[in-house]
Simulated assay, not measured.
Amino acid sequence: MVPVLPVPLATATHLFVRWLHVLAMAVALGGGVLAWGVSYAADAETTLTVATTYEVAFWGALGVLVMTGVGNLGALAPAIPRGRWGAAFVVKLGLLLVVLIGSAVRTTTVRAASDAATPATTTLERGYALTTLALITLVALAAVMAHG
């Protein structure tokens, strides 16, 4: 006897990939907000501890975001919509590239701050502010794409 699944496996897989995508963005964005707030309000030691932890979580989340994003895109292929959705998608990819480059710089800055006698936490605060604002913009573009 073949077991009957309440949801087709393909649908369950697509749903799982989308939930992973949302969860990874929650880690990236939530961690960015936390790191920004801590870098603004806390001492240098606490800021560096949170920043170092966030960098590991961010790059892990980013890896999941890229993998699941490609998976989500593959579910649409070959009929990728044009118009407003397509324009939002192109802008989202461009902003993602900017986030990748900026995040590499931010991670390098965190490592340099960890080695410095007096770390420049103002630089970290700005880096996390820019990261958070860019991620909020990516979420807004994702909402435009999800709702047409």
Rank of each mutant, 00 (worst) to 15 (best):
T109M: 03
L100S: 13
L130W: 13
L20R: 06
V90F: 00
W19L: 15
G71S: 10
A104S: 09
R126F: 10
H21Y: 08
L29C: 13
L29V: 10
L34F: 14
M25Y: 10
W19H: 12
I136A: 15
G63H: 06
V70R: 05
L133C: 08
V98P: 01
F16C: 08
F58M: 05
P3V: 10
G86H: 06
N72R: 15
T107R: 00
A88K: 00
V64G: 07
V56Y: 09
T108P: 00
H147K: 08
L20C: 15
R106F: 11
L62G: 12
A26C: 13
A112F: 02
A113L: 06
G74S: 12
L96H: 01
V56A: 11
G32S: 14
L76M: 15
Y128T: 04
G32V: 05
R111T: 05
A57F: 14
F58V: 02
P3A: 12
T109P: 01
V56H: 10
R82K: 04
M1I: 08
G148K: 05
Y128N: 02
D43E: 13
R82I: 01
Y40S: 14
W36I: 03
V7H: 11
A117G: 04
T53Q: 05
M1W: 10
A44I: 04
T122M: 02
V50C: 05
F89T: 04
G69D: 06
Y128M: 03
Y54S: 03
T68P: 05
P8W: 11
R82L: 06
A44V: 10
I80Q: 00
T122D: 15
W36P: 00
A77G: 02
W36L: 14
A12R: 09
V91R: 04
T109F: 01
K92H: 11
H14F: 08
G37W: 11
V4C: 11
A35P: 05
S114V: 10
L133Q: 05
L48Q: 00
L135F: 08
I136E: 03
P8R: 10
G37M: 12
T121H: 05
V22R: 07
L96V: 12
L9Q: 12
V56F: 06
R82A: 11
G37A: 12
F16D: 08
F89C: 00
T122V: 07
A57P: 03
V90K: 02
A87N: 03
A42F: 09
G102N: 10
L29M: 14
L100P: 00
G31I: 07
G63L: 07
H21P: 10
L73P: 03
V7P: 04
A61V: 07
V90D: 00
R126N: 08
V22E: 07
G37I: 09
T122K: 04
G94Y: 03
H21N: 12
G127I: 02
L100C: 14
L20T: 10
V99A: 00
S103P: 01
L96S: 12
A12S: 13
G71L: 05
T68S: 15
G71M: 09
P119W: 09
G127F: 04
T46R: 14
A129W: 06
